[in-house]
Simulated scan of single mutants.
Amino acid sequence: MKDNPVLAAMRERRSIRRYTQEPVTLQEIEAILEAGRWAPSGLNNQPWRFLVVRAGDPRQEILAGKTKYAHIVSRARALFCVFLDREAGYNRSKDLQGVGACLQNMLLAAHAQGLGAVWLGEIINQEPEVTRALGLDQSRLELMAVLAVGRPDQAGSSDRKPLGELLLEPVARKEQA
């Protein structure tokens, strides 16, 4: 697992909630967006839509005012608002799964570039108010998450339950001949 860069990135990525004041470059932002764009989706419908709010944009404080994680939003150097485009969807469950894959790709792209990021889901408790406050069409777009991104100003940490606790039954082993 450690020899494979994709598997290593999945294992090493952490949620980072504190950032330095150093900006995130346009090239880094575009790489994160490209990673999201290439996520799998049912029927390849790609139902996600992005709004990037960079540090200093007045919409950053609008977003901060809509979540209990205002301190993270206010310090982020870039915020990636990810929406579900209802007009592009065909099956809500599959569309939500696709958006989740999109978000994971974006988090991995941030990590791969040495950036820190965190998936903020609590803000959707204020949806569609957030969408309306951003001046977007709330009948078409539904906020799924905001990714806060910046240069890490903290080390990440995490642990996981043992795999055995997550399996509904043991994986059958087949011996190679």
Rank of each mutant, 00 (worst) to 15 (best):
P5W: 11
P5C: 04
P5G: 10
L7E: 07
A9D: 11
M10C: 14
M10G: 03
R13D: 00
R17S: 02
Y19C: 08
Q21E: 14
E22Q: 15
P23A: 14
P23N: 10
L26Y: 05
L26D: 14
I29R: 00
A31W: 05
G36E: 07
R37H: 12
R37I: 03
W38H: 15
W38R: 13
A39Q: 11
S41A: 06
L43W: 02
N44K: 13
W48K: 01
W48Q: 09
L51P: 06
L51S: 05
L51M: 15
P58T: 07
P58N: 09
R59A: 12
Q60E: 09
I62F: 09
G65T: 11
K66I: 01
I72M: 14
V73R: 03
A76K: 06
L79P: 05
F80Y: 13
C81P: 06
V82C: 01
R86E: 13
A88P: 04
Y90F: 14
N91R: 13
K94S: 10
L96K: 03
Q97L: 12
V99P: 00
G100D: 07
A101W: 02
C102F: 05
Q104S: 09
Q104W: 10
M106F: 10
M106V: 11
L107E: 07
L108T: 01
L108M: 11
Q113H: 06
Q113M: 12
Q113C: 05
L115W: 02
G116W: 03
V118A: 10
L120N: 04
G121I: 05
E122A: 15
I123W: 00
I124A: 01
Q126P: 00
P128Q: 09
V130H: 00
V130I: 15
A133H: 12
L134D: 02
L136C: 01
L136A: 04
Q138I: 07
E142Q: 15
E142N: 02
E142H: 08
L143F: 05
V146S: 04
L147V: 11
P152S: 08
Q154K: 09
G156A: 13
S158F: 03
P170F: 01
